[in-house]
Structure formats: C-alpha cells, structure tokens
Amino acid sequence: MNAQNNTQLETPRRLIPSSGEDARRQVQARRQRIVVNILRVLVSVIFLSAWEFASRAQWIDPFFFGQPSDVVIQIWTWIIRGTAQGPLWEQIAVTLEETVLGFLIGVVFGIILGIALGRSQILADVFGPYIKAANSIPRVVLGSIFIIWLGLGLPSKVALAVVLVFFVVFFNAFQGVREVDRNLIANARILGASPRQLSTDVILPSALTWIIASLHTSFGFALVGAIVGEYLGAVHGIGLMIATAQGTFNPNGVFAAMVILAVVALLAEALVTLIENRLIKWRPQPVSDISF
C-alpha cells in the first residue's frame, strides 16, 4: 500500500480558498447582506406608512380596515392589561401547547405508518385507498366533530392539529421509503443487516431528508389546526382572540392576533431549521444559501 501517494493524488473536494480571495469574498457577501436587509425594511416601512396614511386621510375606512398604529396599541394593551380571556402570554401558551402536542403526535404517527406502509407491499395495497380517500376530505371540517366529541378544551384542538399534520408527514415518509436506493439496501443486507437494522439504519436515515422537508410545512398545519379549533369553540387561545375581535367588529384586534401568530410561527420555523441541521449534518451544503 502506498498511502502517501494516494492522499496526494486525491485531496478532498472541500477546497480552501486562499486567504486574500477569501477576505474579499467575505466583504462582498457582507455588503450584499446589508443592501438586502435595508431593502427588506424599506418594503415594510413603505407598506405600513401607506396604510397608516390612507386610513388617517380617510381614503379607506379605519372602522373596517384598521390602522397600523392602532394595531400596535392593541398589542400593547393586551400585553399590559391582558385580553378579554385573560393574560396574553396565557393565550399564546395555550395555543402553542395545542400546536406542539398536535405536531409531535402527528409526526410520530406519520413516520411510523409511512415507514410501515412503505416497507410492506401488502399493507400499502390494503390501506392505500383508505388513506387517499381520507386525505381528500377537507379535514378542517373535522374540527366541528372533534369539538362535539372532545369538548371545548385542549384535546379537540390537538386532535385537529394531529389530523392535519399526520397526512403531510405520512406521505413524505412513505415516498421517502420508496425512494431509498436499492443498492444501499442490497449492500446493507450483504454486510449483515437484519430486517430491523435495515429499517433503523438504512431506510429511516435515507427517508429522513423527505421527512424533515415535511416538518416545515406540517408545523404550519399544526398551528392552523390549533387556531381553527379555537376559532370554532374554545375558552382560551389566540384563535378565540381572533373570534372575539371579529365578533366586536375590531379589525385591529384581528390584525394584532395575526402579528402575534406570525412571530410565533417564525420562531417555530427557526427551531425546525435548527433541528434539521442537527439531524442531517452529513448532507452537502445546498448550492445557494438564500435564506428567507
């Protein structure tokens, strides 16, 4: 074996650019980031001031369309005095609890069933049509059934979130299992993997790229499930705040709740990305690194 020769012939692909070029590229990248950030802020400033101006000038009726300054005041009031249902943080905590519980349960069931049906032709043949049929129902209507069955509390919201999350994760896990490279499976079998080891050591990690891609959308679905559930009937939560604001003709309240939801959703999205990077660190970096 001539190991020295080989390592000289084949250096790893990750090339290290020279320090001068590296520094210049960094400066360039930083400049571009600053420009992009300024433009981003500018877009929202123009939009919000146009809205504010239009409603103050009575071009649009503030009674129906609200105005940004009142939305801010509404959020401030909720923070200081609490909402009609109690302190603001309590409403956020309730909605988050429903969302996270629904998300976790839906993901676990989706992965287990997706892999089971992906692995077994007979299971896929028997249950496939039922799952397709269930998926074609607009599942939000199930919210009413869940409230009748489970009441106004937490379980009915969690159930709706689970139903919404499950199908997204299930179809991705199923497809992920179907797309596993046949060579990898043959290789693992020859190397001595048992059927169980095939599932845990080859199929699950291979399907994980697909599954994780579904987590981004499915967390959004979990939030939709919780909010719609609260909207249909609840005693706490952001969805109820929206319903109350609607009932009292308070557009600023609806917008304020939307802002709070957006913040919550973005924080959750960042968390999912963090988990994603932790779980699939073996993946090559994507070619472009534009982040939204």
Binding site: N183, L184, A188, I190, L191, G192, A193, D201, W282
Partner: peptide
C-alpha cells in the same frame, strides 16, 4: 460473500469510520 457495487453504495449519512464499521456493527 463480500460485494462491491458498481455505483456508490456507501451510506451517505455515515462518516468514513462509521461506514467501514457498519458490517461488524450489524
């Protein structure tokens, strides 16, 4: 038998050490 495949059949989510140790661990 040991089998070397035409296409890459090393596990992309395992590093070199884990890949080579895969057989014994199985």
């Amino acid at each position: 038998v040991g089998y070397m495949f035409q296409n890459d059949a090393v596990f992309p989510w395992k590093n070199v050490l884990e890949n080579v140790a895969a057989g014994p661990l199985f």
